[in-house]
Each structure stands twice: as C-alpha cells, then as structure tokens.
Amino acid sequence: MLLLEILSGFCLLVGGFLCVTGGIGLLRLPDFFSRVHAAGLTETLAAPLLLAGIMLQMPWSLDLLKVLFIMILVLATNPTATHAMAKAALHGGQEPQIGNGNGQGETSSKA
C-alpha cells in the first residue's frame, strides 16, 4: 500500500499547490475575465486532485462513492457557473481588457 500512499500524497501536494496558484492568480491578474481563468484553475484540476488524494487513502466504503459524486458535481457545475458569470458580466457592461494586461490596454468594441 506504499504506492497508494505516495500517489495520494502527490495528488494532495499538487492539488494544494494549484489551489494556491489559483488564489494568487485571482489577485494578480488584471481584469475580471482573466481572473475567471485563475478561478477555473482551482476548480478544474485542483479540486479533483485533492478529492482523488483522499479517495486513494480511504478504505472501500460508501464514502468513496460520495467523494466521487462531489468530484463529478464540482466538474459538471463549474463550466455552467463560469459561463453564467461571464455572461452576466458582459451583460452588465464589463468589457474584456485586450492587450498586455497592465491596465492601459484598449478595450475591445465587439459584441
């Protein structure tokens, strides 16, 4: 079972690292639409990795199935929620910033 332990530790570490990366990105990136990408980072890979990390440590039981359900739920709802947010932001007059992302890039005139 040593292999499982190592694999689980690896998943937890990488997941935790990606999680913090997403948080940092949420603070560093210049505008709303690029921050969405940072948030996606923590939800598409970090969350499943962390959950897979504890799944690998668990004994066989119904709990395993529940964690799997949580993982599927997070993965399935993430694009919908992201899309709803992006659409609402566009609707509400937010314009994506185009260019080098230092705050002086011109905004696009599309849509």
Partner: peptide
C-alpha cells in the same frame, strides 16, 4: 472547462 479559454 479548459483553463485559459472561456466561452462567453
């Protein structure tokens, strides 16, 4: 779902 791209 792929980070880096987003359908608006």
């Amino acid at each position: 779902l792929t980070p880096g791209t987003l359908t608006t």
